[in-house]
């Protein structure tokens, strides 16, 4: 059966989202932005310290294939009271691995409203907008909003220092042996 053109054009666009928690606050992210979800325990052995990171929200990095991803504490990023994270979202097309408390559910949003122009702070890059679900308002995360270009540059410098230090200590260990 063919729907009339007008009926087709009025079908609402939908997007599958993941609702998740950070320090008791609910956020949404497009499921297409999440490449992989892992438990924190699962990646603990692979994470590398970044002692010279100047960003409080990033203390570790992780190697994935030929790329280095930075593990962002989402609670610190949003200025919330940090709680022990249990999951990591590896965000697609970014260099962010995001520490979160837990996933609530997957659902579908039919409408994304742009953030009011009254919001003029960093939140304009943090969120794609707001959506209403079950009579509640949920901010929809912009996956590219966790690390700015300047922050990535700082982190790359810190990573370089950490790598150099590791190399030096390995060489020193080899000489001692």
């Amino acid at each position: 059966m063919h729907l009339p053109a007008s009926a087709k054009s009025h079908q609402p666009r939908t997007e599958q989202i993941i609702l998740f928690r950070i320090s008791g606050q609910t956020f949404a992210i497009s499921s297409s932005s999440v490449q992989e979800v892992r438990s924190v325990d699962n990646i603990a052995g692979m994470a590398r310290d970044l002692p010279e990171s100047h960003l409080r929200k990033v203390r570790h990095s992780i190697r994935r294939g030929d790329r280095t991803l930075y593990i962002v504490n989402a609670a610190v990023h949003f200025g919330l009271q940090p709680q022990p994270a249990s999951l990591v979202f590896f965000l697609r097309r970014t260099r962010t691995a995001l520490l979160i408390d837990g996933i609530d559910k997957m659902t579908t949003m039919t409408r994304l409203q742009a953030l009011s122009l009254a919001f003029q702070g960093e939140e304009r890059s943090w969120y794609r907008g707001l959506t209403a679900l079950d009579q509640a308002v949920v901010p929809v995360i912009n996956p590219e909003g966790f690390l700015s270009l300047e922050e990535l540059t700082l982190l790359e410098t810190a990573q370089f220092s950490a790598d150099a230090r590791t190399l030096t200590s390995e060489n020193h260990g080899a000489h001692v042996q």
């Binding site: 606050q25 200025g79 919330l80 409203q113 919001f119 003029q120 702070g121 960093e122 939140e123 901010p139």
Partner: peptide, 18 residues
């Protein structure tokens, strides 16, 4: 929800508009 616009308290939902 977290934001840095200190003059704002949040949003209300009115007839589907935030």
């Amino acid at each position: 929800f977290p934001h840095k616009s200190s003059a704002l308290e949040g949003v209300i939902l009115r007839r589907g508009r935030m």
